[in-house]
Write a protein that binds this DNA or RNA. Structure first.
Lengths: 179, 179
DNA sequence: CCCCTATGCGACAATCCGCCACAGGTATAA
DNA sequence: TTATACCTGTGGCGGATTGTCGCATAGGGG
């Protein structure tokens, strides 16, 4: 199914530089050669220069939608496996992405394990039953991200998350979080 | 693409009798001939007797999943348009439904207008939500994803998530929260 | 000064969670 | 077929968590 010895190219399309850097390292550690694009035109530039077996593309990049990129990537290389990854997910966009040819659709936060699994190589490490995030851990990361987007405004974050401010406070002061 | 003058057959698959009756009337009022099935075997029975251009199938029917029904319907009639409709919607199942051949995927409650629109191939790209998910919604999506990876095995999912099976069950019975 | 908002925290009730138990159901191997 | 192991739905109960209200404090305009 998967040939781990051959060099594989993957294209990361996300407007968040930090995210792409972190992901890039993670993929490289697993034997991928990675190219990074921060918007659609950069992505198209990349695929004009070489072929990619896989692409991870963000749904929401500044003003443009990653959805439009899918058919363009597919047009250049019909057998490319594309996984959509986004922090602003919805059922409607997920359906659209798959109809447009995406292989899968994930919500951030997601780690490499989950992304690789989304591509289909779940059989990488049968010995290690690599666990998905625990619900608590996921919650923690999500809260932190939204907190940051709201400039550490606890009240605004609580509103955005649909949770009571008091509850958020308690979660924030109590959690080092395991796993 | 659609011919409104010709008599059209539509198949409703949902284990809720009340829902099917209401929907049935609404479709008939719009010139459809409707057949009702309350489970998979009834549905297969229906398509063995006549052809349907369209089908609306519920995701969660008692014990069985409507997902499995999709390829079966497609096998009998490859050009059938299938819309998945469910009160227990998640991105994971939406992606799976589309990959299995569903035309679209809607969340209950949905009225006829929305369903008919889902059948029409209006290529309008869905809007990207500008708010992050609520914590509860994120949890729901994550649970659904892991559940699917574990072939709907609740015990295994609970183990993978590090949560008690009883707790998982209680969460699963509840409808997903919005946002 | 007033008004609005953010923050921290106490208190209490409602809800939820972890855990045990038990009764079927199902699948696989002997 | 029986035996065995696992999965599932459900009830109950004590303890933990959450939702909600209130109050005091602090900063920023106007």
């Amino acid at each position: 199914m998967s040939n781990t010895t051959e060099q594989r190219h993957i294209l990361l399309v996300d407007d968040d530089p930090q995210f792409t850097v972190v992901m890039s390292r993670a993929f490289q550690r697993r034997g991928y050669s990675v190219s990074i694009a921060h918007n659609s035109s950069e992505a198209l530039n990349c695929i004009a220069q070489q072929n990619f077996q896989r692409a991870v593309v963000d749904l929401k990049m500044d003003k443009e939608s990653g959805l439009q990129l899918i058919p363009q990537l597919k047009a250049a290389q019909a057998d490319m496996d594309i996984v959509m990854l986004t922090g602003y997910s919805s059922i409607a966009t997920a359906v659209e992405a798959v109809k447009l040819g995406a292989l899968n659709y994930l919500c951030k936060p997601a780690n490499i394990e989950e992304i690789l699994k989304a591509f289909g190589d779940s059989e990488t490490q049968p010995a290690i039953p690599d666990q998905p995030h625990s619900v608590d851990r996921l919650e923690w990361e999500h809260i932190q991200k939204v907190l940051q987007e709201n400039n550490n405004n606890v009240s605004a974050t609580a509103r955005a998350l649909g949770m009571h401010r008091r509850t958020l406070q308690r979660k924030l002061q109590k959690k080092p979080v395991k796993r």
